[in-house]
Design a protein around this nucleic acid. Structure first.
Lengths: 220, 220
DNA sequence: CTAACATTCAATATTTTTATTGAATGTTTT
DNA sequence: AAAACATTCAATAAAAATATTGAATGTTAG
């Protein structure tokens, strides 16, 4: 094998990995799988895809080595192949947010809206949680809460939150979190809670960052 | 704009960034640009592409925000848009090396060959260089040496090295380096030098890592 | 000003990817 | 064993990306 052949072959295989993440739907799937381990049907629903279509995209991700799957009963659960997938996805996202003009302008009014909401950093939240000073709400879908959540958080997906409003403390500080920087669920919940007269903030970065920082978790 | 529209639009733009690196030739270009700033013709030559083809690929990279260009006289020089591009490329490479089976097996016999060559770490080399104990050779093409090289290195591209063999010290330790983990130039040079009776080693990782570690450089 | 040169643009045939549909596979439940 | 269900497979039409060619643009040198 000549040097040129070696190179061509190597870059071709590398491209099979990058090709796997070169489609909007597959990026969205990956951004979900960074949150936990999920079955095909759930992934399809969350990403607005047909099951067949989600399955095909998942095959592509699997063949490139980015995700793995395991069967439990009739369900097949997919997950990222390792921490490197998460860190690469973060690096990529950071890069795109910084250097791609369309993304920058798309995020702009999204950010200005969000900046009007009070935020609390993961570190500060961590301290307050240890002192029991905070009422912490996870607004992600129940399945994602079950796959893993911040220790001491309460699961209150949108609809459930609205139904159980009277259980919330009127005078204590309420902190809400969702998936991460691309997720809008916490913003909506905070706006809603403030409108209803609660003292609500959002956690600065979502669950993804809590995961990345190895802070205390709970499952199930 | 609904949440779904926002998401769809965002992931689509993110995919335009990942699409940009989803082609073998563009990855090879990027791997080169991580080394320095080069004109189109040079990039085309190094990557075995026609100038028109290289130019088109460069446009794709530019439009996604990954690279930038500037004109100097009749030449147009391309470079990566920022450090994030380098770190993302490293993360991606590391990921692929770890999780993609085809790449792993492709690298295997490449590695066993390389492992038979003595190596010196960047840190150790750095120390020895400060004490002047080492004769350091850069085997990359002259253009790349000029765009930036390790301080105190001598430029000896393959052909030049062969012509100036008698200038090399027979008893001093010679260290050779090239671009990085995907580059074969240093391996070849070390094999050649050892065959000619010199005490030669290769630097463990190439120039890319030296760059990433912010060790002493020189230009021109 | 003209010739030479580096790069990009434009057009298009070819190749690759994608979406969609319904059938096939494998598992659990009854 | 049959029904119900989750997922994958297979086929193919539609859409997107790519390679190739030669012309166009912009710059320098004579």
């Amino acid at each position: 094998m000549t040097n040129r052949e070696f190179k061509t072959s190597l870059y071709k295989h590398l491209a099979s990995v990058t090709k796997a993440v070169s489609h909007a739907s597959r990026l969205e799937i990956l951004d979900l799988l960074v949150q936990g381990i999920f079955a095909v049907e759930y992934i399809a629903k969350q990403t607005n895809l047909s099951v067949a279509s989600a399955s095909q995209h998942l095959q592509v991700l699997k063949n490139s080595g980015l995700v793995e799957c395991e069967r439990h009963g009739k369900y097949i659960y997919y997950k990222i192949a390792g921490q490197e997938v998460r860190s690469t996805w973060y690096a990529l996202r950071k890069l795109a947010f910084k250097h791609n003009d369309e993304i920058k302008s798309l995020l702009e009014d999204f950010r200005t809206k969000r900046n009007q909401l009070e935020q609390i950093s993961t570190d500060e939240l961590h301290k307050k949680l240890e002192k029991g000073e905070v009422y912490l709400i996870d607004v992600r879908p129940e399945e994602e809460f079950e796959a893993g959540h911040i220790k001491n958080a309460l699961s209150r997906p949108k609809k459930m939150l609205e139904k159980t409003l009277d259980e919330l403390p009127k005078d204590q500080e309420i902190v809400v979190y969702c998936r991460g920087p691309l997720c809008l669920m916490a913003d909506e919940a905070v706006l809603y809670l403030k409108y209803q007269g609660f003292k609500a903030k959002r956690m600065e970065n979502g669950f993804t960052d809590w995961l990345a920082e190895n802070k205390p978790l709970a499952v199930g």
